[in-house]
């Protein structure tokens, strides 16, 4: 379907199921990546993806007043991820081991490494960074994931969280400072 997102949204609100299927197709991987980086858990990320689209479908009439479909979608997914993350933190869930999931493919462990030893060293550091991220409060963790991993701008994150950009900047700086403190020594080349 060769349509722009606003066109698809308009068709979807008008009841076009194919337009909705196309929106699912275009955004599902992006949402999964975001949810997975926040939750570190395939099952929870899967739940976020499904639930986000189901909620969008049920609230489709609200889309007529939405300027950025992507932001609206990301807001629902991020808030749902944060809810799950808080529950996860409460029950001290252990993130699943992605290597052991059948059919689970790590597409790109690190795009910067060159040698096997570097791969091992970097993988170890990646895991440490992941654990450090998990130790952050949910909102700071989500902000760091959105900005530094998923590449959202501060303005976009402010729209997603419906808060001032200064709050995003502050959360991000605090999150990074905490991460640097936890990983102290491991970040020196």
């Amino acid at each position: 379907m060769n349509k722009t997102v606003p066109e698809l949204v308009e068709m979807f609100v008008g009841g076009d199921q194919k337009a909705f299927a196309e929106l699912v197709h275009r955004y599902k991987k992006k949402l999964y990546s975001l949810a997975y980086h926040i939750l570190r858990n395939h099952l929870d990320a899967d739940e976020v993806v499904q639930e986000t689209f189901v909620r969008i479908y049920k609230r489709r009439e609200e889309l007529l007043n939405v300027n950025y479909f992507s932001t609206f979608l990301t807001r629902i997914a991020t808030n749902y991820s944060i809810d799950l993350l808080r529950k996860q933190k409460n029950r001290q869930a252990v993130p699943d081991d992605t290597d052991s999931l059948p059919g689970f493919i790590q597409l790109d462990l690190s795009r910067r490494v060159a040698t096997p030893s570097q791969t091992f060293e970097n993988k170890e550091l990646m895991e440490e960074i992941q654990r450090a991220l998990e130790s952050l409060p949910a909102r700071q963790q989500a902000t760091a994931v959105l900005h530094d991993i998923e590449g959202y701008s501060k303005a976009e994150i402010a729209r997603i969280f419906d808060c001032p950009q200064a709050t995003v900047r502050s959360n991000l700086h605090i999150a990074r400072a905490k991460l640097r403190k936890i990983l102290k020594g491991r970040l020196i080349r």
Binding site: L107, D108, M126
Partner: peptide
């Protein structure tokens, strides 16, 4: 350099793909 390295590692977090069947 530490801040930069952290940012680089965050930017290069692995991207997972559960596969076409999923």
């Amino acid at each position: 350099h530490q801040a930069l390295r952290l940012k680089e590692f965050l930017e290069n977090q692995p991207i997972f793909d559960p596969g076409e069947d999923y």
